[in-house]
C-alpha cells in the first residue's frame, strides 16, 4: 500500500509541529500550510488523502478553503477534518454543511486525532 498523505493547515507553527508529530506517528507523509491559500496551492500540486484544517487564519480562512476545495475537488476527497478553537455547535454545523467530514475542538491529543481519522476512513479500525 502506498503511504497515506495529510496536509496540516494552521497559522501556528507550534500547532503544525504538534499535529505533524501525531499524524506522522500514524504512518502518514505530512505537508504543512499556514493559511487556506497555501493549502489550496498544495492541494493543486498534489491532492492529499486528508486535510487537518484550522478555522481562523490570515489570507484565507479555513471555511473559505473548505468551500473552495469542495467546489474544485468534489465532496469526498480529500477527507477534511476541522481542527479549531471554534467550539460553538452553530460553527460545527456550518463546517459540516460546507462539506467537512469531521471536527476537532482544540485542544486535541493523539487519541482524538486517531478517533477522528478512523471515523473518516483515513485510518483502519484497530482490532
Amino acid at each position: 500500500m502506498t503511504q497515506r498523505t495529510c496536509l496540516v493547515v494552521d497559522d501556528s507553527l507550534v500547532v503544525r509541529k504538534a499535529a505533524r508529530r501525531i499524524i506522522e506517528g500514524f504512518g502518514f507523509a505530512v505537508r504543512e500550510a499556514k493559511d487556506g491559500q497555501e493549502a489550496l496551492d498544495a492541494c493543486r500540486a498534489q491532492l492529499p488523502d486528508g486535510v487537518l484544517l484550522d478555522w481562523n487564519m490570515p489570507v484565507m480562512d479555513g471555511i473559505t478553503f473548505l468551500r473552495a476545495a469542495r467546489a474544485e475537488f468534489g465532496p469526498d476527497h480529500p477527507r477534511i477534518v476541522l481542527c479549531t478553537t471554534e467550539a460553538e455547535i452553530a460553527r460545527i454545523i456550518e463546517a459540516l454543511s460546507a462539506g467537512a467530514q469531521e471536527y476537532v475542538m482544540k485542544p486535541f491529543d493523539a487519541d482524538i486525532i486517531r478517533d477522528k481519522f478512523t471515523q473518516v476512513g483515513l485510518l483502519e479500525e484497530v482490532a
Binding site: 455547535i89 454545523i93 487519541d111 478517533d115 477522528k116
Partner: peptide, 23 residues
Amino acid sequence: TQFEVQRGLPVQMLVKHFRQEGT
C-alpha cells in the same frame, strides 16, 4: 467535557444527540 465527547463519538452524532452548555 469537550474532551470526552471527542472520544469515539462521530461529530454528526454529537450535533444530533447532545445539547451544548458552554464547554
